[in-house]
Write a protein that binds this DNA or RNA. Structure first.
Lengths: 262, 262
DNA sequence: CTTTGATACTTTAGGGCGTAAAGTGATTCT
DNA sequence: AGAATCACTTTACGCCCTAAAGTATCAAAG
């Protein structure tokens, strides 16, 4: 039997993800650990929240904890695993129950809202998931929450699964637009309107035939009307709300179809 | 008036995106250019397609063209702009018309399918967009295509816009799952089943109480039944199809609602 | 026909990154 | 007192992007 590269590492990662978060203090000889996996993960999350994923390096995390980059390797196998831990711990923040007084739909809306908040609080989540599934408790928690909230639709679980992933994708996509706009504003120092204004002026100058080439887009009008609050972010929020509604309408149609034409 | 950092760069980027793709040969003194922006972008796309975004570096692109990394800077301001160009040129590949004999719904399905194909052919697209909008011709082309296909629903354009972004997000999300599974298989050399099998064995060992903690997830059964073809990829495809259907059902409901209860 | 100047491309260098390997010093057990 | 252990640092390597300076090639000007 061939032992594949990364198989031992896989066990180590899983232990980190699922193992106890408070480790009993060591007994043997040698110095006591001054850090912990949890402290490192928390520091890393703080950095990513505040300065973005680009600012997250083993060096920056070490520095924030008063250590060198290499000190982290005592606790964590590498940066990949650290990021997996950040991702999974953060997903664990999602609330697990939603008021279901009014049936499945308000609960689903509340859940979508909570997902939106979570991603907006930790926008770097969106840059992490392109990696393979982490299979940690946080990821399971999110799946469990989504599935159980939407199981209340009465649809067979195998179909609920698709609803879950579609909902998740709609939320992620629209929150991504919101997060991008914030990040761009922060990084460039430009307000959204300034950036967009400069950009569309440039577009008008360099591509005068734009309305002719993209008539339907043009019919939507100038994308930025004068608005007093962050425009793209508001747009993203609207897209989120509309997308979720659309999807839930689809779910309702599926329920009706499943219960037979009345 | 303050001149913000990156403002001049913005003009340069826009010119690269929108300018003529075949540049007239230089006339003045000095050696003739041996490369071109288009050649560089094409080489970069080849690399990203074949080896993934991680393998894309100024060095690797230069090498593929028989130059050093620095040679590229004669044509392109930096890596950021190169990636923007790759992204936008690739989006331009999306077909622009879809058979609408059967009404808007088959056309929308065809469009969704084309988007799926495009992203599966160029999975790195999914890692690029977390950046700010590129505003190049390719992006406009995609928007125009999506909008015009879905404008056939008869809904007001302002609402079609939300449909467009929801559809786009559903497609992107599910194709991402498919792409990830391919990439993981390629990178580790493990087949999907082997990887997943090892992982769930590990899970069962390290987290024996998993079914109790996540009952709904557990009810879905072991995620991998014996299957002969790539499992996650098939799963992603199913999620794509189901998600699109769900969304289009939602659109239909919106149409009915808009045209008034009959 | 030489000189000038523009320009494609290379070389060198500097500051990032992740992490392997070796060294240091404190602690506890024998 | 000595040995073993282990947290943490230092050093070093190879990769990244790209600024700056150097080189070679060409067209036009004198």
């Amino acid at each position: 039997m061939v032992v594949f590269a990364g198989q031992g590492d896989a066990r180590r990662s899983m232990e980190l993800l699922w193992g106890p978060r408070v480790v009993a203090p060591r007994t043997g000889p040698g110095p006591k650990p001054g850090l912990s996996v949890e402290a490192i993960v928390a520091a890393a999350i703080d950095i990513a929240d505040a300065e973005g994923m680009a600012a997250l390096s083993m060096r920056s995390v070490g520095e924030r904890l008063g250590r060198t980059a290499m000190a982290l390797y005592t606790y964590v196998p590498g940066k990949t695993e650290l990021v997996d831990l950040m991702y999974d711990r953060t997903l664990g923040e999602l609330p697990s129950s939603f008021p279901s007084d009014g049936g499945w739909r308000p609960a689903a809306l509340g859940l979508a809202d909570a997902l939106w908040d979570l991603h907006l609080r930790h926008p770097w989540l969106l840059q992490v998931s392109p990696a393979r599934p982490v299979l940690g408790p946080g990821e399971f928690h999110v799946q469990e929450t989504l599935l159980s909230v939407l199981a209340a639709t009465g649809l067979p679980l195998a179909r609920v699964r698709w609803v879950v992933s579609a909902l998740f994708n709609v939320v992620r996509g629209s929150v991504q637009a919101a997060a991008e706009s914030r990040q761009a504003a922060r990084e460039t120092g430009l307000s959204e309107e300034d950036w967009w204004g400069a950009r569309s002026a440039l577009l008008g100058e360099l591509v005068p035939d734009l309305p002719a080439r993209f008539p339907t887009v043009a019919r939507l009008g100038p994308s930025v009307e004068a608005s007093e609050e962050p425009y793209l972010e508001r747009e993203a929020r609207l897209s989120f709300e509309a997308g979720v509604e659309l999807l839930l309408d689809g779910v309702e149609a599926a329920i009706v179809k499943a219960s037979g034409p009345r």
